[in-house]
Design a protein around this nucleic acid. Sequence first.
DNA 1: CGTCATCTGTGCGCTGTCATACATAGGGAT
DNA 2: ATCCCTATGTATGACAGCGCACAGATGACG
Lengths: 239, 239
Amino acid sequence: MNDDPRLNGLLAGLPEREWLRLAPQLEWVDMPLGKVLYEPGCPLSHIYFLTSAIVSLLYVMEDGASAEIAIVGHEGAVGIALFMGGETTPSRAVVQSAGHGYRLKAQALKDEFNRAESMMHQLLRYTQALITQMGQTAVCNRHHSLDQQLCRWLLLSLDRLPGNELIMTQELIANMLGVRREGVTEAALKLQRAGLIHYVRGHITIVDRRGLERRTCECYEVVRKEYQRLLTAPLPHQA
Amino acid sequence: MNDDPRLNGLLAGLPEREWLRLAPQLEWVDMPLGKVLYEPGCPLSHIYFLTSAIVSLLYVMEDGASAEIAIVGHEGAVGIALFMGGETTPSRAVVQSAGHGYRLKAQALKDEFNRAESMMHQLLRYTQALITQMGQTAVCNRHHSLDQQLCRWLLLSLDRLPGNELIMTQELIANMLGVRREGVTEAALKLQRAGLIHYVRGHITIVDRRGLERRTCECYEVVRKEYQRLLTAPLPHQA
DNA sequence: CGTCATCTGTGCGCTGTCATACATAGGGAT
DNA sequence: ATCCCTATGTATGACAGCGCACAGATGACG
């Protein structure tokens, strides 16, 4: 019942020769909501290529406050520290939307990395896209309103999911954005009253995608374009 | 009158064999205050290994508002998009503290990258450190006070400079932090009254470094430790 | 020596977000 | 059907940072 590994953009982008070498080493993994793929400072055992799940990269402060610094979906991989050489990161990876993925043992990736060409360039390019997202998140945190950031977040998530529905409570979104739950309630209410979204107890339906795009800040577009530019295999769910 | 290229941590960390191959291709460059190394979307012609300058990576919004997402000093390099494979980035690199560095032609780097081992791992590790700084910046923007962020910024800058003086107006700092100049004035006043720093028209002297460390948020320490951990060649100017 | 641009200090009202507290409502479990 | 947990809506006061306006102070330069 496993889904196709090549739903993952990075794997799909590999030339046949490299793909055949890699495929037998991929392990299918279930990713239920809330599953933690790695904790800050823990050596990574695998790199995860997502097919249907969404994973949030979170920075958690000492006082427990947290902020999402990037979203990863089927366009990318979780655990880039593995090939970056640092072994660990100060971030935490949590499944934000249940689904599946494939993982590759740390050693296998390193072997691959030392001889392969496409795989490496593929991953490096993806890394740059991820970096762009992180930077844009930082700027967005500084300059844009919660309303705009919520739109950005909804759109970025939607781009990584099939359909037009998100399973996500306002409490969780608040965690992702690093704001209060009440703030998200207010912002979401505005969007609902404007007829852009509809939600009930953790089920958010995007009614008017264009409307969201008009309300969000430039950050969404910057990130989207950069992903498109850098990743040869385009995001299937993207408009 | 050129300074030693191996003041740069990445170059210093290379094994002799690779260093000898690379050295003749390095070009010494002057980096006056305000010099722009690259603009968003412009293909990079060189990678810059800094020896004595400090460069800010800025994200500039459509309305002109900007925020620094990372600081680069003699521990690193500017233009990582070159080897990441994306060719360009949405960020802007501006010299924040005048000094010098060495640059390497894009093609030379790529040639190097394709056959070299240490150089690549060196750069990848550095990239991860940079990523950490970006992420931490994003979280800091979200959760910490301007007072704390100013301390963080001063410390991060100081770690990349000799001595204990910064040449930097409050206006410029405000630009880096993405806040109002007046806000920086107020925060700086507090620090001066507490006897931690002393400043006059663009000259900031750090009087009590420990005091700043006590006032700043955890973000500074996280970034510092991660740089230390990832970069085998330690930062010379660091405490 | 005087002028002027630049840098720093201060006040004021405004807005967005926070902290806290509490009210309502959907929907699953029994 | 009932209960209860979880999700969502609302109010209130506090406060940080913003935008704007302007004053003083320093130092470069003619």
